[in-house]
């Protein structure tokens, strides 16, 4: 069996590909090959010989779905891929739209539907939460600076100014809000999300939905060390039934299929949990879930193949991950291989 995985960019804002592969490889019944799909010739995971047997350069999905599919088909002719597990936000819509075309050439994927991806969008999540009685910070969509003058009365400064795809800043007054509005809109476009600021601590859940409303597994984590990019560089598995239950409820209401990361903010005064975001893929810390007893990446591969998977009911609390950096030394020939031929053979 051949499983292709994306997101081998193990940099300071790492993609989840390497930990996903680590989980798949550690499954007792895994007997196959891993193929890496990379967007950049310097994605570190491609050079780690224990990660993928071969790595192929692919174009960004923003370059057009036809070109994207053509390259995947080309690779498939060589490799005969059984399953692709996409792991990056930016490629989810592409894989959702190409799902049936990929199946027609024999490749199965595990990806949320276009509708699911749309509902969990930063601009739509608040309405979804309101409908299903899930606590979420109040939201207001601003398409122009003028809209900032018309903030609803329940939104008081400080507020969080968020981009539709990325970036978030805390604005303490109108001047700061305006400045962040311009900064984010020039980079990520409109609308800009003006969100109620909840003071507290962030908690995360890594989960897998089976597409029929069921949760295959879910593990809660508290970040112990956060980088200047806001990424967790160390974290610990925790016991928190409430955020696990909220995550299960969302998966049930959406019939969510695939990996997901749920981000919560716990109000430091009321202890109430607010759902901040749903990321439509496994987080980069997914290997902590594997180490705590829930091999969700392996279960995802099984689900993609249409196999019945057993649900995980518990996990070990108090498992810690600590990420580290390591200078991998290799030969320029490897870089040449991937740059010129578009493939890097690690065997």
């Amino acid at each position: 069996m051949k499983i292709a995985v994306t997101g081998l960019n193990n940099v300071d804002n790492p993609g989840p590909g390497v930990p996903v592969i680590r989980g798949i490889r550690e499954a007792d019944d895994f007997d196959g090959e891993i193929i890496g799909l990379i967007y950049d010739a310097l994605e570190p995971g491609a050079y780690m010989s224990e990660v993928a047997s071969r790595n192929y350069l692919i174009p960004y999905p923003s370059g057009g779905l036809d070109i994207y599919f053509e390259r995947l088909s080309q690779i498939n002719e060589i490799e005969k891929i059984d399953v692709i597990i996409p792991t990056l936000d930016a490629e989810m819509f592409a894989f959702a739209k190409l799902k049936s075309k990929l199946e027609s050439i024999g490749i199965k994927t595990l990806v949320p539907t276009v509708e699911q991806l749309t509902i969990r969008g930063k601009d739509k999540l608040f309405s979804f939460c309101e409908k299903y009685n899930i606590s979420a910070p109040k939201n207001y969509l601003a398409s122009s600076v003028q809209d900032l003058y018309k903030l609803p009365s329940e939104l008081k400064y400080p507020v969080v100014i968020k981009g539709i795809f990325y970036d978030a800043y805390i604005a303490n007054n109108f001047d700061e809000a305006e400045s962040y509005f311009r900064k984010i809109s020039s980079k990520w476009g409109y609308p800009i999300i003006v969100q109620e600021y909840i003071k507290g601590s962030e908690y995360n859940v890594c989960a897998l939905g089976d597409g029929e409303g069921g949760t295959v597994g879910a593990v809660a984590m508290k970040k112990l060390f956060i980088t200047d990019k806001g990424k967790g560089w160390a974290g610990v598995s925790i016991e928190d039934d409430e955020i696990i239950d909220i995550s299960r409820k969302v998966i049930e209401e959406l019939n969510w299929i695939g990996g997901a990361e749920f981000e919560f903010m716990r109000d430091e005064e009321t202890n109430k949990n607010y759902l901040l975001e749903i990321n439509p893929r496994f987080p980069a810390w997914v290997y902590l879930a594997v180490a705590a007893g829930q091999n969700l990446p392996h279960a995802a591969v099984q689900l993609a193949q249409g196999k019945k998977v057993e649900t995980f009911e518990s996990y070990e609390v108090g498992k810690i991950f600590i990420r580290y950096s390591w200078d991998l030394i290799t030969d320029i020939k490897k870089f040449e291989e991937i740059t010129v031929k578009g493939v890097l053979n690690n065997e």
Binding site: S201, K222, G235, V236, I238, E239, D240, V317, G318
Partner: peptide, 18 residues
């Protein structure tokens, strides 16, 4: 109930990760 203290005086709160 959910407070764990080791013999070395290391206290871990499984609900918050602190």
């Amino acid at each position: 109930n959910n407070v764990a203290v080791s013999e070395n005086g290391f206290l871990f709160l499984p609900g918050t990760g602190e």
